[in-house]
Nucleic acid binder design. Structure first.
Lengths: 252, 252
DNA sequence: CGTTCAGTTGACCATGATCAAGAGTGGTGG
DNA sequence: CCACCACTCTTGATCATGGTCAACTGAACG
């Protein structure tokens, strides 16, 4: 798992060996580790660098005066946080570590050099940025329109495919180091309701979730429950787990 | 109202006369008009060009199999829809016209020329893109965490400031050509509940809304009701209508 | 072993959804 | 000029999804 970023970018555009070398260098130059539950950067701070997630999970979130918070995205290995820095002068949200989080820091100058010398990488970075925006749109749809069960099924499908695209799944299983509180803050429900809803999914055999490990025995079934359509992730090589990969539909 | 785009971009970065000329040319080269309730482009289509909104309102939306739909952003004069096209091969959402909509079409080559010759414009376009993503995040917060009243107050504050930044407000008033159904699809509520909530805001004297015209007698009061903090819009020159502009708080 | 944190369960409550009907309002054609 | 139609807005009655409050379990860790 040396370079999830390279793996991620290759979902979108072919890379040369030189590109891959460049990415490897970027990922090893200046790394930081943030302890779980700590913040990488806070709302209001001036962004200093771009970070690439190497290991662990983080989340982008905003806090309301009332104390409630909303997670607006996750950051898993291969993800970038965030291109803001060259344009916007203040962070409009915070980025926190869910688990211990290892990131590579990319400074302004290095980034500039990469962008001007590696067109493939530049294209792929755009791609990542636009996909991330598409994911935001999908989350608006989730909290705006879907029921509790749909939201959770949908979120689990998304996270599984995102992890799969960077090689972090193992068969039908993947890590899912989120507490029910964090899931609740993600989909706009209370953790109590999340708890009951997850139990419902478990009882129906749609998911197994234990010790921070998620197993999805039948991805298609879960996708149907969650009204999940993977198009918005713009993953090129969708594999067996999705409708697209299978061709004919093999519902439940 | 020749070029809302130039006005919009100047919120973010200074432009030269040459830049402004360039933008004027872009906005007059190839314009289209879309009738109200029709689509500019549909989910699944291959994007062909970038569009700049010149006049009227549009919305980005996604439709669910169940028939429900979620509006994920509005497009008002000066907005871009959308930079996707150079990277993603399929639209993952639709763009529709709310009122009659006049747009300028910018082709791939023209766009490329602008990006390579006008660094100011390029920077400003990045800015617009990132602000649009920030708005998405804020919408996730709205549907995830805010009450009906907060959501509507928040939405109205946002739209007013967005229109103000392109010179489309008149004192405390602006056009708001949305039906209550469309507002409902935006904030994830039913139109019936939107109706009752708007009435509540009217009774408290927080808004006037009649004949597609919105008036906000006391912007600060409405911002407080909506837990609205304008930072996420990244508007440089916030004026009298916001906390920032006033300095001392004049809460009722 | 106590302490802490996540998960679980129960009883009750409230925000907002649903269903149904009616009132304005504007545009169109006869 | 008026009548009709469509569309939006409004109102009422009832329902349900999910929220709140509170207590308890169970595992991990010092």
């Amino acid at each position: 798992m040396v370079n999830a970023l390279a793996r991620r970018l290759e979902e979108y555009t072919p890379l040369t060996d030189a590109d891959r070398d460049e990415l490897t260098r970027l990922g090893s130059q200046s790394t930081h580790t943030i302890q779980a539950k700590h913040d990488l950067i806070r709302e209001g701070d001036a962004p200093r660098a771009i970070y690439v997630v190497l290991e662990g999970w983080g989340c982008h979130y905003r806090t309301l005066p009332s104390g409630r918070r909303q997670i607006v995205d996750f950051a898993v290995p291969g993800d970038l946080c965030d291109l803001n820095l060259f344009v916007l002068d203040r962070m409009d949200h915070s980025i926190g570590a869910i688990t211990r989080l290892k990131v590579a820091e990319i400074g302004r100058e290095v980034f500039h050099r990469v962008v001007t010398t590696s067109p493939n990488i530049t294209t792929a970075l755009w791609w990542v940025e636009l996909v991330s925006k598409s994911i935001h749109r999908e989350w608006i749809v989730s909290v705006g329109q879907r029921t509790a069960r749909e939201r959770i099924a949908h979120l689990f499908c998304e996270l599984f495919l995102r992890l799969e695209s960077v090689g972090l799944t193992d068969g039908f299983s993947c890590d899912l180091p989120l507490t029910q509180d964090e899931i609740a803050d993600t989909i706009g429900l209370t953790s109590i309701h999340v708890n009951r809803t997850i139990q419902g999914l478990r009882e129906r055999g749609l998911i197994q979730l234990k010790n921070r490990r998620l197993t999805i025995p039948d991805m298609l079934a879960l996708q149907q429950v969650g009204c999940f359509n993977p198009d918005y992730l713009h993953i090129r090589r969708l594999n067996r787990h999705t409708d697209k990969g299978r061709g004919a539909k093999t519902s439940r």
